[in-house]
Simulated assay, not measured.
Amino acid sequence: MSFKTLDTADLAGKRALVRVDINVPMADGQVTDDTRLRAILPTVAKLRAGGAKVILLAHFDRPKGKRVPEMSLAPLAAPLAGLVGAPVAFAGDCIGPAAKAAVDAMKDGDVLLLENTRFHAGEEKNDLDFAKALAANGDLYVNDAFSAAHRAHASTEGLAHLLPAYAGEQMRLELTALDKALGDPERPVLGIVGGSKVSTKLDLLRNLVTKLDKLAIGGGMANTFLYAQGHDVGASYCEKELAETAREIIRLAGQHNCKLFLPIDIVVAEKLAPGAAARVRALGAIDDEERILDAGPETVERLCRAMANSKTLIWNGPLGVFEIPPFDKGTVAAARYAAELAKAGKLVAVAGGGDTVAALNAAGCADDFTFVSTAGGAFLEWMEGKELPGVAALAT
């Protein structure tokens, strides 16, 4: 997809309405993870350097169209200012007199944060009048919030039709990386999909088996596939009612020449607890009270060989219950090997989704992946092959 970037924009003296995602975790009024704040810095810097007035639009939590004081964006102005290296003003509304007065007071290069767009019901309804009220304070629109691009809201989609629209630097980075992974990848392409439930990733699996050369399934969802193939899964989490669906996906993979990798050995324990006694079992060699909690060493070794024989990797979801050692071993070993290949320039490795990012950070190798997306729902919907309204609206 082609879209306009800030490289082509006339910025001097312009009011730039910039949709960002700074929906960060907070505790006692303090930001506990500033990853999303830091992600917007390249766009803010580029706009300021070009002489634009930078006006940030964002949501926070789910106030459902009402003003909820504890969901105000006001506490983010100070940490943003620290990261930007310049004052960040705050306006108590994103439209109306308060917003207009704050925008009118700006000089070129200034940064202003407007109040939570979701305090207005028109935001999530993608109401045209609300979008026009937002647009009244801007000369151009920049979307730098890929993680919110799967929502057709006024500030993510509607605005793009009312003002000259551009992709921000983080949006450009995200779209370029995703195109390398699934749009126009270097083949062979290997996918890894983990997590607990097949039911939440049916669309994803059905899309991927038609596009990938190889697909490895791990985590709790692998149990459903093993059960569908007639293997005993003991007391493991398993969506047994989806056994036929799993068999359908296996058939679909065969029809599209996508090689499926399911576990060939498993790590089991009777209870899920830190330091629990874990045993490696062959498929089917599981006691009634045992639970499958990680991929076995042979499974991980085979997966690493598949990575070494691939040119592109796209990863969503852990191979086991990585949050609780020793059931993190499979995910950590595979992640570190993928990172090693990526760092050596032998593999384009793209990963995304909340649990995946947490797993890569826990393995200490996220920085060595080609690209790690912090977007959750948007990343999944993109992998499912769905059109993202916020991205489609930027198309030229």
Rank of each mutant, 00 (worst) to 15 (best):
D10K: 12
V24S: 15
P25N: 08
A27M: 08
A39T: 01
I40T: 12
G65D: 13
V68Y: 07
P75A: 08
A77E: 09
P79Y: 01
L80V: 07
G85S: 08
A86R: 02
G92C: 02
I95N: 12
D110N: 00
L112T: 05
A121Q: 06
E123H: 03
E123Y: 04
E124S: 15
F130S: 11
L134D: 07
D139P: 02
Y141I: 09
R151S: 04
R151N: 10
A165Y: 05
Y166E: 06
G168T: 07
E169F: 00
T176F: 09
L178D: 06
L182T: 06
G195N: 11
S199M: 06
L204P: 02
K214N: 05
L215N: 10
D232I: 11
V233R: 00
A235C: 01
S236G: 13
Y237D: 11
E241G: 15
E241D: 15
E248R: 04
I249H: 04
I250R: 02
G254N: 11
Q255K: 13
K271F: 04
A273K: 12
P274R: 14
A277H: 05
R279T: 15
L283D: 00
D288Q: 15
I292P: 12
D294F: 13
G296K: 09
R305S: 14
M307T: 07
N309A: 15
G317F: 03
G317S: 11
L319M: 15
D328A: 08
D328R: 09
A333T: 14
A333D: 08
A339H: 09
A344R: 08
V348R: 04
G352N: 01
G352F: 03
A358D: 03
A359L: 11
L360A: 06
G364P: 09
V372Q: 14
V372K: 11
E381N: 09
G385I: 11
L388T: 02
L394I: 03
L394F: 06
